[in-house]
Computed example of a mutant assay.
Amino acid sequence: MNAIVQYQAQPVVRRNLDFKLEQIPRFWFGGDPFLTRMFDALSLTFPDGERYFIQSVRLFRDQIKDPDLQKRVADFIRQEAQHGIAHDKMNNLMREQGMPVDQFIQRLNKMFKFELERRSPQYNIAMTAAAEHMTALMAETFYSYKDTLREAHPYVRALFAWHAIEEMEHRDVAFDVMQQVGDVPENLRKFTLAWTSALMIGFTIYRANVMLKHDGFTPRQRLQMNIRGLPWFFGKKGTLTRMSKQYRDWFKKDFHPSQHPVIAQYDIWIKTLAETGDPIQAGEAFWQAAED
């Protein structure tokens, strides 16, 4: 049986980081509209999604007696709030490009409102813990190999690097709330990862294609882009496919997020930010330290 705790990184709240997003081109992923809009669609969900995570954890905050978990929850909330602010700036860029960002967000908020009002607190904390499992894998998924984000603009690459670092730092917070005070049945815990994954993947692809339509691409062009682009994520050697083992660990009865190691170059990001105060330089050093 795996040890319950193997690897830990404490949440650190970092404010006022400037990623100079106003300087990035429209198709910032190597001029590829499909990959750009897939990442844009993912980024678009973060501000309101993370506000939902905060609300889900707050449902149990008064029941938490462990001082260490209380502090980690407070830092989790502060980190998620900062993520929302940064990705709101990304959303504003998409608005300026003519994307239907507000329409997407209105639908998102209706869905989150329904979940919080109609579903049990146990369901919501399990959904949050499952989503945090997925986002915590972002660092390994996108930054283990240099080639994965080689064509991405350095400023956006730095934004996602910072987000991934902090997701790893608080990856076990919602999970520990779920375990210690959530009283979540094992079947519900397992179900929520499958359901969260289906929602996240489905909505990301849908929103990306809506944005491509607003970019002026025809249905035939969008179909061709999907055929060419989706294997980058989901193909036999796709970026997300490579992480399938760590993803599936969630379904083991004795799983805990801290059983997964922190990405090898984590300390490089921390050290570079401390030395320079510049998240773009930290993101670049983090990416450069990945395997070739």
Results as ranks from 00 to 15, higher is better:
T141K: 06
R119V: 02
K113Q: 15
Y145F: 15
T128F: 03
E151P: 06
M168P: 01
S120C: 11
V156W: 03
T128N: 03
S120Y: 08
E115H: 10
E132Q: 07
T135C: 04
K113G: 13
T141N: 06
K113L: 09
Y155H: 15
A129Y: 03
Y145M: 12
D172S: 14
Y143P: 08
A174L: 08
I165D: 04
V177C: 08
I125H: 06
K113M: 07
W162G: 05
A131K: 00
A164H: 05
Y143L: 11
L137N: 02
T141L: 08
E167F: 12
L149N: 15
A152W: 05
A126N: 08
L137M: 14
E140G: 14
A164M: 08
E140R: 12
Y155F: 14
I125F: 01
S120D: 10
P154H: 09
R150H: 13
E151C: 01
Y123V: 14
K146N: 13
S144W: 04
Q122I: 11
I125P: 10
R118W: 11
R118I: 04
E140W: 14
A164L: 01
M138V: 14
K113D: 15
A161Y: 04
E151S: 13
I125E: 01
L149Q: 02
H163G: 09
M168S: 13
V177I: 11
E140Q: 12
L137G: 06
L159V: 07
Y143R: 07
Y145V: 00
V156Q: 03
T148W: 02
M138A: 15
Q122A: 15
E167Y: 09
A130E: 00
W162D: 09
A152R: 02
E117A: 13
T148M: 03
A158N: 08
E169P: 00
A126C: 10
R171L: 00
S120M: 10
L137E: 11
Y143D: 03
R119G: 00
F160G: 00
A136D: 06
E117R: 13
H163Q: 10
E140M: 00
A139R: 09
T135V: 13
A131W: 01
F142L: 15
E132Y: 07
E167W: 09
Y143A: 08
S144I: 01
V156M: 14
K113R: 14
Y145Q: 15
Y145L: 12
E117H: 09
E140N: 12
P154N: 11
K113F: 08
M134D: 06
T141D: 04
S120T: 15
M168F: 04
F142C: 03
Y143T: 00
E169F: 09
T141G: 10
V173T: 14
R118V: 12
A129D: 04
R118T: 13
M168H: 12
L137K: 05
I165T: 07
A136M: 07
A152Q: 09
S144Y: 05
A152T: 12
A136N: 06
R157H: 04
E132C: 07
Y155V: 02
A126S: 15
L137P: 00
H153C: 02
